[in-house]
């Protein structure tokens, strides 16, 4: 960490990362469900920008297409249909469980951080190799080495689709 020179690029990346962290905090702190969801969208987009800046374009664009473009739209859909916008419904009373939650959160952060952070120590070029994780490489790996898991996952998705249709429609 210490041998990383402070360059404008690093400042930009740091700024984006900081904004993403602020957006993540906003997801938890907003009472209004729509605003929380929008903070999550902002967080996803900023994460994708971070990936772009680290030369991992494929990962970033997947992040935007899948999470921001599809999943969060469905979330917004549900929030609107259930009309969860009224903030007064979501204000909780003071609750001792809150402190327990904070404690558990800190412990979880310590656990994950103790495993993840040492790996970043001494990294001086925060950039993937050229075409690392590009569409060609991913496609080739997915359809050769991981062809069987890929097909298994696609069957799983198909089963999920059929199941949801069966549950939603009584008579087909």
């Amino acid at each position: 960490m210490n041998n990383l020179p402070v360059s404008p690029n690093l400042i930009v990346v740091g700024g984006i990362a900081g904004l993403a962290a602020v957006a993540a905090v906003g997801v938890v702190l907003f009472n209004n469900a729509i605003r929380s969801a929008m903070c999550l969208v902002l967080n996803f987009v900023l994460l994708a920008v971070l990936y772009f800046s680290l030369n991992a374009e494929m990962l970033g664009i997947t992040q935007i297409a899948v999470y921001t473009g599809a999943i969060m739209v469905l979330f917004l859909f549900v929030i609107m249909l259930l009309n969860l916008g009224a903030p007064q419904l979501l204000v909780e009373k003071k609750d001792p469980k809150r402190f327990a939650a904070i404690g558990f959160g800190v412990v979880l952060f310590g656990l994950v951080g103790s495993q993840l952070l040492p790996a970043f120590n001494g990294v001086s070029t925060p950039q993937a190799l050229d075409d690392f994780g590009g569409p060609h490489a991913i496609g080739r790996t997915l359809f050769s080495a991981y062809a069987y898991p890929f097909e298994a996952v696609s069957i799983l998705l198909l089963v999920g689709l059929v199941g949801s249709i069966l549950l939603a429609k009584r008579r087909i």
Partner: peptide, 23 residues
Amino acid sequence: NIGVLYILAISSLGVYGIVLAGY
């Protein structure tokens, strides 16, 4: 390397403006 995927991803963001305006 991901030009077309970029187009699809950004065009999928177009729904937000309309949905949020409607809400």
